[in-house]
Amino acid sequence: MIDLRRLQVLRVLRAEGTVTATARALHLTPSAVSQQLRLLSKEVGSELLRPEGRRVQLTPAAHILLAHADVIATEWEQTRADLAAHAAGAVGLVRVAGFATSFGSLLAPAAARLRDSHPRLEVQLRETDIDDSLRLLLAEQADLAVLPVAGAPPLDDPRFDQRVLLDDPQDVVVSADHPFAERDSVRLAETAHETWIAPHHDQFQLIEVACAAAGFAPRVAHRAAEWNSVLVMVAHGLGICLLPRLATTSPDHRVVRIPLRDKPVPSRSVLTCVRGGSRGQPAIAAVLRALEDVVRDRRGASGRG
């Protein structure tokens, strides 16, 4: 018999690359991780690791085992979903990881709905970046992640079940005294001679692709990791930026967001991501339905506006 917990240690090692990082992800000691892997090696009757300096290399046998481990993990998650549905329904703890701009428009409203509609369900929210969200899912430290882009990891990665929750269009954001501020809409090509502020890496990649499609490369003068910093610089006339519709502004920011009339409008996909086989677990399914309801209400409010 193979201990599924030891298989999970091997799966996390593949993702993390080192025993030390694996121990940190699983909240274990490095010696405990090494012991679990040694026991797993005995259980399958094959060497799974080969020392390589201070690191370890997965053997061919380990890669064969991992291919089956992903299938086994998905089946186990589905089994847990069926048992949970049979036993108690949507109760217990669901840990949700999300990116910063998903909180005000998606995660917090969904958690508030569930607090009222599912009092036996506890939802814990945690702000993370994409890589950390995936690590938390794989290490079973999170149950659901909301991710701002597609393709990381690939949609056919057997470890995860990823589905599009919504498309998040981009607006141009300028200072209140900018010549564009009185416009109802602009074309992205009209911003070719503007000074740009580069936000965090993933968002700036989207901006570069969108600007290239419009026929120019953005001339960047400033960079910032947080949206508040970007908006403060925009408000002071230091540059412009593309702002996702999910990212909120306040009167204190003294900026104006202007819709783009390009076809198609630059946009990013927002995904829900869970471990393979776990989407049907009642507690996780309840959170997913709440997120979908929030998205539906946002679309309705936009249509009425």
Rank of each mutant, 00 (worst) to 15 (best):
P169F: 00
R223Y: 06
A67W: 01
L242Q: 04
T191D: 04
S250Q: 14
Q281S: 10
F180M: 12
I258H: 01
L155N: 05
I284Y: 01
G45R: 09
A23C: 10
L260M: 08
V270W: 02
V44S: 05
G92D: 06
P158A: 04
Q141P: 01
S31L: 14
E75T: 12
A67Q: 13
G53I: 07
L83P: 02
L291G: 07
R126N: 12
G92K: 05
R120C: 05
A62M: 07
P251M: 08
E140A: 12
R279K: 11
P30T: 11
A198F: 07
L49N: 03
A112F: 06
S34C: 09
T18L: 04
E208W: 00
T29A: 15
D171V: 02
D171T: 08
L136I: 02
A189T: 11
S185R: 12
P51G: 07
E75H: 14
A108S: 13
R159D: 00
L10M: 11
N228E: 15
H200G: 08
E77R: 10
A81W: 03
G277F: 05
L138Q: 07
A100T: 13
V91F: 02
H63V: 10
E182R: 14
D82H: 13
A32E: 09
S34F: 06
L271K: 01
R11Y: 00
A176F: 09
D297T: 12
S229T: 15
G300F: 03
P153G: 04
T101R: 14
Q162D: 00
S267D: 07
A286S: 14
K42T: 11
V256G: 01
E182P: 05
M1F: 09
C241L: 00
R55Y: 06
D82V: 15
I284F: 04
F103M: 11
H68V: 09
L28K: 11
S250W: 08
D131M: 09
A192E: 11
G239D: 05
P119Y: 08
L26A: 05
T191Y: 01
L121D: 01
H63R: 15
T101W: 09
L242W: 07
Q78S: 14
H63M: 10
A225E: 15
Q57S: 14
T249Q: 05
R298K: 13
L243D: 03
R254K: 13
N228Q: 15
A61W: 05
